[in-house]
């Protein structure tokens, strides 16, 4: 256990820039953009001389019905969530390339010979890297985007309160704790969902003699193209759409945060989406609720994908042990 902790720590030392600083800088940029946006709005408002101050914000909320208030609260919740989109994209790129390099870079610079001179099993080495890709990096990204989101909420509510809104009432309408708990609670789910991609990338990383990125991309995309071609010729009845989505997509894109959501939204809900505002909120709320997301755990996409990921990781461990090219 102690060895495992130090293995994870080693990964963090090596990848501090991408694990820690990349999300923090992204969060900083989001905050800066928000600040610039608010400032611009204020400047334009002052120039054009629009008077909002004359209207009592409290008077408005006082006249809102419960539904409208909850809509306002949901909108505020969304502002906590919004940095997660940008931070999530950055995290996806970081983890994707981390996995590709994880078992390849030290073979290329031959430092693998140093790591292999220590009494550490190849299984522990590979698993520590999996833990970094599926738990450590996502946790740092989630915490960063939560902090960013809360800071954003503060900036917006303070701005609104300068125009007479009641700061505490607005914060009371939002549900920061629920949003934070939801996001943190998604991490284990994310780890499971990401396994096939992590497994595939690390397998390529352990196996490829050179250019793991090309191999990782060419093999699934090439196979997908073949399946599509066969499909076009009508040779067998395997749906190429199914193949692209469930094999190619899962092998390459499952690291994208929340990429399980499209699978889990029932068709009826998807059809309703965009029809009315209240439906939208309902669906969005459902999508974010932990219970809804965890119910997806038992779906075959999750289970078979995770099993395939574990299988590929076993392959990566085997290659790590026996690949002999240093």
């Amino acid at each position: 256990m102690k060895t495992f902790y130090w293995l994870v720590k080693r990964e963090f030392w090596e990848h501090r820039g991408s694990f820690l600083w990349a999300p923090i800088i992204t969060g900083g940029i989001v905050l800066l953009l928000t600040f610039m946006g608010i400032t611009t709005a204020e400047v334009f408002r002052m120039r054009s001389g629009v008077q909002i101050n004359g209207i009592d914000f409290n008077a408005i909320t006082a006249h809102m019905d419960a539904g409208a208030l909850s809509t306002l609260g949901n909108a505020l919740d969304m502002s906590i969530l919004s940095p997660a989109i940008l931070v999530g994209i950055v995290m996806f790129l970081v983890i994707f390339f981390y996995c590709l390099g994880s078992l390849y870079d030290d073979r290329r610079d031959r430092s693998i010979l140093f790591w292999k001179s220590l009494p550490i099993s190849d299984r522990d080495t590979v698993l520590s890297k999996v833990a970094c890709a599926t738990m450590l990096a996502p946790t740092i990204a989630v915490v960063t985007s939560i902090v960013t989101g809360l800071l954003m909420l503060m900036m917006m509510t303070i701005t609104a309160s300068l125009h007479g809104a009641n700061l505490w009432q607005m914060l009371g309408l939002a549900h920061p704790f629920r949003v934070v708990a939801n996001m943190l609670g998604m991490i284990p789910l994310y780890a499971l969902w990401a396994l096939p991609t992590v497994g595939w990338l690390m397998l390529c990383s352990a196996w490829a003699r050179n250019k793991p990125f090309l191999w990782a991309l060419i093999i699934p995309v090439g196979t997908g193209t073949f399946v599509s071609w066969f499909n076009l010729m009508g040779l067998f009845s395997l749906s190429d759409r199914w193949f692209w989505g469930n094999v190619v997509g899962r092998a390459l894109l499952s690291l994208f945060p929340g990429s399980w959501v499209p699978w889990q939204v029932p068709g009826s809900a998807a059809a309703k989406f965009g029809q009315t505002a209240s439906d939208n909120h309902q669906i969005m709320g459902d999508m974010l609720a932990l219970s809804h997301n965890y119910s997806a755990l038992v779906s075959p996409q999750f289970l078979i994908g995770a099993a395939a990921g574990i299988g590929m990781l076993a392959g990566a461990i085997w290659f790590r042990r026996w690949r002999d090219d240093s």
Partner: peptide, 16 residues
């Protein structure tokens, strides 16, 4: 590997 050490050649310590 608990009982054996090795130095392979000069360039194997990780650069970071």
């Amino acid at each position: 590997m608990g009982e054996v050490c090795f130095i392979a050649d000069v360039a194997v310590l990780p650069r970071w």
